[in-house]
Design a binder for these strands. Structure first.
Lengths: 338, 338
DNA sequence: ATGAAGTATGCAAGCGCTTGCATTCCGCGA
DNA sequence: TCGCGGAATGCAAGCGCTTGCATACTTCAT
């Protein structure tokens, strides 16, 4: 190809000005066509859009964000993207916000050193909202978030002292209600199998408290490192059983763990739930579709996502948020494993 | 709190200038302290850093990116964040790039209308790199990506005609090798169970071609919608079996599907692998840890992530990339299910 | 002493947009 | 015919940084 016209510099991206020149209008008008076409005469809109198409112009959102101090993106900070319970939440939120012209982007915010750096990298982009999934305990970080000026939404938990906005449910209530439920079902010797994370621990402890209050003996507890890996969970259960433990039900802090327990129990010839019952948490897809449909706690992740999206949009529109803390609750599902 | 000093406007974020004034230097110097501390006298660095700490300054990366035309972030476009095989890749890449001061953010790029909008929203932020996981077939989009000026890396596949850079493996080779392997193992009547996605299809077709070439009869095929849900997979297998199909092995396009097949087979009293063997793809965590350790194809997702990160860094540093297409290969794992 | 060759810093011109305000152009009632 | 209000557009001043170049100050070898 020889190129008919000398282009400004074949490689650089076209700018507002290129489009404006081509359409014979000012850059202001092009900007309006892009952002508020209603304010521009119809014929002009068409001419400008043609120019945009012709040049392949893609607005530079860095410049736009700088000038308008609205970045039109929201950052979601997740502890891990692997088989996370937050997926439904993220997808729901992403869809809702995309419709309104926002971009949702996920960033990994895991423990340890990188932590603060990632946070600055996110906040430095002046997001129009940030969604937290893992509860942040570090006060310095909470302060930094609060000061950032962006709306902050904590999800999947209801912090006693929220940074800003929150939508989720009470992990304590879950623990307590599961304890009652299991008691009602007639089980006597629960084993708590829990990933060592903060929220799981909250549920576990609430279970134990409630259980004792209901007249049960202090329940046995085992911890595993990862909430999603099978092997450690199987080994934990195996260890407990081999050591002579005789639980009649194991309460798991996630459905993956519960699945692993079902596998382990069957591998040793125990029937689920008659020899050993299993109770999960989360109601992830696999839980109703595996070998034994899991009794578990259902959390409506998508609802959380929607609620969070709505809050953000309200904030953006300057609407007053009547209820900065939304409790979406949970539901105990009785299936076949307990 | 009454606030001892009148602040400029209590609510606005501190800027470079605020820090500069406080440290008694010019904004240029503060900028250097932040970005290239080596070029500034030690004493000055300390003074400026103190001022930064005092003010809680977080650099506005929109402004920085605009001025330097380096955004220091890379966008990863994923079709879904739910139980994706790409997780290892993303985590590895994210870790590698975070160390170099880049932020990796994931954006959902699913099919359908939103598509183009999301793409513009991403490209408009002028990423220093974009990672594609699902192969993009739409030529308009491929063109837009190519023209964006950002390095583009296609992963998990090796397109015949890459947009820019690529790191992955050949799905055809996988299909072919699995066919040979299964043939060598002595199986006669494979059933191909595949999620309807492009790459899965590629493997499936390559398997079928190779199988026929090896003297086998054209294999039976079944499709399911989702690569990660159990129920549809179980139903598909059940339907085939109920209709009188008599496969001796089912070749699945993902380990989740394979898991589901194991569950279904056992539920009907068939032993795995003697009555029905199962072959997976991906070697996700669950595959070696479930009820029956899965024979499968191992893909090193983390390696893909690392390679992609390296390419991006090379580009950023202006180093010449000697090999724009990296084949990381794959490995056939013989475990117990086949 | 003296000029060359660094260092350390400051100056100021942008980067590509948005937006308040000013200007121009209509149509229409008086 | 004239003036007025509103719609459509343009002008130009930033938004908060980066960075090439100029300036000022050191440090040394001569």
């Amino acid at each position: 190809m020889t190129g008919r016209k000398a282009k400004p510099s074949s490689d650089a991206q076209p700018t507002l000005e290129d489009v404006a020149r081509r359409a014979g209008v000012s850059t202001a008008t092009v900007s309006r066509v892009v952002n508020t076409p209603g304010k521009v005469a119809k014929a002009t809109v068409e001419r400008v859009q043609a120019a945009i198409a012709k040049t392949g112009y893609v607005p530079n959102l860095l410049a736009g964000g700088l000038a308008s101090s609205r970045s039109r993106f929201v950052a979601a900070l997740v502890p891990s993207i692997a088989s996370s319970v937050f997926n439904d939440t993220m997808e729901a939120m992403s869809r809702a916000l995309t419709e309104e012209g926002y971009l949702v982007m996920l960033a990994l915010l895991d423990e340890g050193p990188g932590h603060a750096g990632v946070l600055d990298a996110v906040l430095g982009r002046r997001p129009d909202g940030v969604i937290l999934t893992s509860i942040e305990d570090d006060d310095a970080i909470r302060l930094k978030l609060k000061r950032s000026g962006s709306p902050i939404i904590e999800t999947w938990g209801l912090p006693a002292n929220p940074i800003d906005l929150a939508v989720g449910f009470s992990h304590r209530d879950v623990g307590r209600d599961v304890a009652r439920h299991v008691k009602d079902l007639g089980y006597k010797r629960p084993l708590l199998l829990s990933a060592g994370m903060r929220r799981a621990r909250e549920r576990t402890e609430a279970f134990a408290r409630a259980w004792v209050k209901l007249g049960g003996a202090e329940p046995a507890k085992t911890f595993v490192e990862s909430p999603t890996r099978y092997r450690p969970a199987r080994e934990a259960l195996r260890g407990f059983l081999d050591a002579g433990g005789k639980p009649d039900i194991v309460i798991c802090s996630s459905d993956w763990l519960a699945d692993a327990c079902v596998v382990e129990a069957r591998a040793r010839g125990m029937k689920v739930p008659s020899d050993l019952a299993v109770f999960g948490f989360g109601d992830t897809h696999a839980s109703s579709e595996g070998a034994v449909p899991l009794s578990t706690v259902r959390i409506d992740g998508a609802q959380i996502g929607h609620a969070a999206a709505r809050m953000l949009l309200d904030r953006a529109a300057g609407r007053k948020i009547t209820d900065p803390i939304v409790d979406v609750g949970f539901e105990i599902l009785d299936r076949e494993s307990a």
